[in-house]
């Protein structure tokens, strides 16, 4: 599943689309940043409600394929600016993380 496919599946709004054709490995749900860095696999879709600027650093350094902000959470201005600068894929969805995960389960390669 690509980032574009994920966006369609979740009726997501685009915050930043750096590479819509990037292939996603799996999903990961979590909000504590060190749990994400410790456990989220490379190229994953990361489902979270965290929306501060550090989310971009974590996504970049842990090599996440896309960040999905759940529950209608909107990113702060600093985060929007940084994901554009760092070429991080970021989507927004109204679904909660559990629902987003169930909708995408089994669709990753």
């Amino acid at each position: 599943m690509t980032v574009n496919n994920l966006a369609d599946l979740l009726n997501a709004k685009i915050v930043n689309l750096a590479d819509g054709e990037r292939e996603l490995s799996t999903g990961y749900c979590g909000d504590f940043l060190s749990f994400v860095m410790g456990k989220a696999p490379a190229d994953c879709a990361w489902f979270t409600v965290m929306s501060n600027v550090n989310v971009c650093a974590v996504a970049t350094l842990a090599d996440c394929g896309a960040v999905v902000l759940c529950e209608g959470v909107t990113p702060d201005d600093a985060l929007v600016e940084k994901v554009r600068l760092q070429d991080v894929n970021m989507l927004m969805t109204d679904y909660d993380a559990y629902t987003a995960a169930t909708l995408t389960a089994g669709r990753f390669k």
Partner: peptide, 15 residues
């Protein structure tokens, strides 16, 4: 509140 402080920093560095 920023998402840090889960107590996984040093364990992650070791890992």
């Amino acid at each position: 509140a920023l998402g840090f402080g889960a107590g996984m920093g040093l364990p992650n560095m070791k890992k």
